[in-house]
Amino acid sequence: MAKLRRRGFQIIAIADVFDTEAVKAAVIHAQSEVVIEQLTALPNTYTGESMSAAAPLNQRLRQEGGANVLAAAQAAGVQRLRGVLNAKAKRELNFQPRPLQWMVDTTVACAS
């Protein structure tokens, strides 16, 4: 967190992405118009072994964590969600976008 602050970010809320209620409280507290979800668990090195080892957490982050972020954003009335929610997760969540208001796509945003 200190590294983020040194780069000029203001920390508004923090939550364990696997804690549904904590994520909802954090998103509601942030009062954001947009939520950007980029949950991933990538290893420091990209070998077959390290990628295989990271896969279970990465899948859990994207499915369970992504579902929590989506539910929190909806509960908070957020108008836009940008993230990595995949088609399988959308089906499992029975995702129904609100016309012209709710966007879920696979855009990856990077900041430097």
Rank of each mutant, 00 (worst) to 15 (best):
K24V: 15
K24W: 11
K24Y: 14
K24D: 13
A25N: 15
A25V: 14
A25G: 14
A25S: 15
A26E: 10
V27F: 04
V27P: 02
V27L: 07
V27G: 02
V27R: 01
I28C: 06
I28Y: 02
I28K: 08
I28V: 15
I28A: 10
I28W: 02
H29K: 11
H29W: 00
A30M: 04
A30D: 02
A30P: 04
Q31P: 10
Q31H: 11
S32F: 05
S32P: 06
S32D: 02
S32G: 04
S32Y: 03
E33K: 10
E33C: 00
E33R: 10
E33S: 09
E33Y: 02
V34S: 09
V34M: 10
V34C: 05
V34H: 06
V34D: 02
V34Y: 03
V35F: 04
V35A: 04
V35G: 06
V35K: 09
I36R: 09
E37S: 13
E37P: 04
E37F: 15
E37N: 12
E37Y: 13
E37V: 08
Q38C: 09
Q38F: 13
Q38Y: 12
Q38A: 13
Q38M: 12
L39H: 14
L39V: 14
L39W: 13
T40L: 14
T40W: 06
T40C: 10
T40V: 14
T40Q: 15
A41H: 12
A41C: 11
A41K: 07
A41R: 07
A41S: 08
L42S: 08
L42P: 01
L42G: 04
L42Q: 12
P43A: 07
P43D: 04
N44S: 12
N44A: 14
T45I: 13
T45C: 07
T45M: 13
T45R: 13
T45S: 13
Y46T: 00
Y46A: 02
Y46R: 07
T47C: 07
T47D: 02
G48Q: 01
G48K: 08
G48W: 09
E49N: 01
E49P: 00
E49H: 01
E49A: 02
E49V: 00
E49Q: 01
E49M: 00
S50I: 01
S50D: 09
S50A: 07
M51I: 04
M51W: 00
M51Q: 01
M51H: 00
S52A: 13
S52Y: 01
A53Y: 09
A53M: 08
A53D: 12
A53V: 06
A53T: 13
A53H: 10
A54P: 06
A54I: 03
A54T: 03
A54L: 07
A55K: 12
A55S: 15
A55N: 11
A55D: 07
A55F: 09
P56R: 10
P56I: 06
P56E: 05
L57G: 03
L57D: 04
L57H: 05
L57C: 09
L57F: 09
N58H: 11
N58T: 09
N58D: 14
Q59L: 14
Q59E: 12
R60G: 03
R60L: 06
R60P: 02
R60Y: 01
R60Q: 13
L61A: 05
L61S: 08
L61H: 11
L61P: 06
R62Y: 05
R62W: 04
R62V: 05
R62M: 10
